[in-house]
């Protein structure tokens, strides 16, 4: 699509054209559910259940947690098979700071790259400079400062960094509440207070000023980590998440197909308790969860990255 291409990258109120199509794809995923899948068969189930995208992985987070070892970008063969099987967007994860893995995934032409704390970080100091890529990135954040640092690096979508593979929604709730309340606070501040807030949050002043005006992140704000039931999906949606990632929650449950569909339904009808009730009606046993408070700091995934 090079013919008649609009020139003037960086010009215009909506930013460069590349940035617009990156955030544009994130916009298209709003209201939906993005599901972790480890093979083509699961991807097909997810698509049929109404997932708006899938995340191609070698192991779901709960297995990564159990088995330990170094978790890396998934095998190309697995990602390719999934890309060939479904028509919805396919995302894949890279280790924090591992820009060479990101280069590989861009060459593979995945639709979205997740620079994810679920994998073992490759760089404990630096995240990837995501503006260099044409493929959009999603990054995790526990609070507004972290979200804005990732956006400044070029993330086109933010998700909470709820404790992946725990089946426990508490961390995702904590992060979503933190992000939303910190944004609200900015809207009440005077111009001369915003610089101090930028310093406190460790975030660029320009983005802080923008949020003070709009009360919203400049990119879609999704939720991920520990979401295991339709009511979990409805909860984070009501707290401000514009879409939901479900990891281990679907394919580690006793009834993946029914559960996938039920979570999709609840994510859309999150404001209608009757619809969420209906979504729960048919469900079997959810994945077994972990109590995050019993976990040691070294076992927490959300503390990876900054």
């Amino acid at each position: 699509m090079d013919a008649n291409k609009v020139n003037g990258s960086g010009a215009g109120s909506k930013g460069s054209n590349e940035w617009r199509v990156k955030v544009g794809l994130a916009e298209m995923l709003k209201g939906g559910v993005i599901m972790d899948v480890t093979n083509a068969e699961q991807a097909k189930i997810a698509e049929k259940a109404g997932a708006c995208a899938v995340m191609a992985l070698e192991r779901v987070p709960s297995d990564i947690r159990k088995e330990g070892g170094v978790a890396r970008m998934a095998s190309i063969k697995v990602i390719r098979e999934i890309m060939a099987t479904v028509t919805i967007p396919v995302m894949a994860k890279v280790r924090i700071g591992h820009f060479a893995e990101a280069d590989v995934l861009q060459a593979l032409e995945v639709d979205f790259i997740d620079e994810s704390e679920v994998l073992t970080p490759a760089d404990e100091e630096n995240h990837i400079w995501k503006h260099d890529y044409r493929v959009p990135f999603v990054c995790g954040a526990r609070n507004l400062g972290e979200a804005l640092r990732r956006i400044a690096e070029g993330a086109a979508m933010i998700r909470t960094k709820g404790e992946a593979g725990s089946g426990n929604v508490v961390e995702a709730v904590r992060h979503m509440r933190a992000i939303v309340s910190q944004m609200k606070k900015l809207t009440t501040m005077r111009d001369d207070e915003l610089m101090r807030e930028a310093k406190e949050l460790g975030a660029p002043l320009e983005l802080i000023r923008q949020i003070a005006k709009t009360g919203k992140l400049p990119v879609p704000n999704f939720s991920a980590g520990g979401i295991a039931t339709p009511a979990d999906a409805a909860l984070v949606r009501r707290l401000g998440a514009e879409a939901v990632f479900v990891g281990s929650g679907i394919f580690k449950s006793s009834d993946p197909e029914t559960r996938a569909k039920a979570v999709v339904k609840a994510a859309t009808h999150f404001e209608d308790p009757k619809a969420v009730l209906e979504a729960h009606e048919e469900l079997g046993e959810a994945m077994r969860g972990l109590d995050v408070r019993q976990m040691e700091e070294k076992d927490m995934l959300s503390t990876r990255g900054w």
Binding site: A3, N4, L25, T87, Q106, E109, V110, D111
Partner: peptide, 29 residues
Amino acid sequence: NAYGRQIASDVVNGPTKLKKQPLEMVFIR
């Protein structure tokens, strides 16, 4: 998905009957 995957998404201009100037078009997958 006729243009390809996300990497082919782009902003272009095309002729329209709705106005004299070309129309800006954002194609996403």
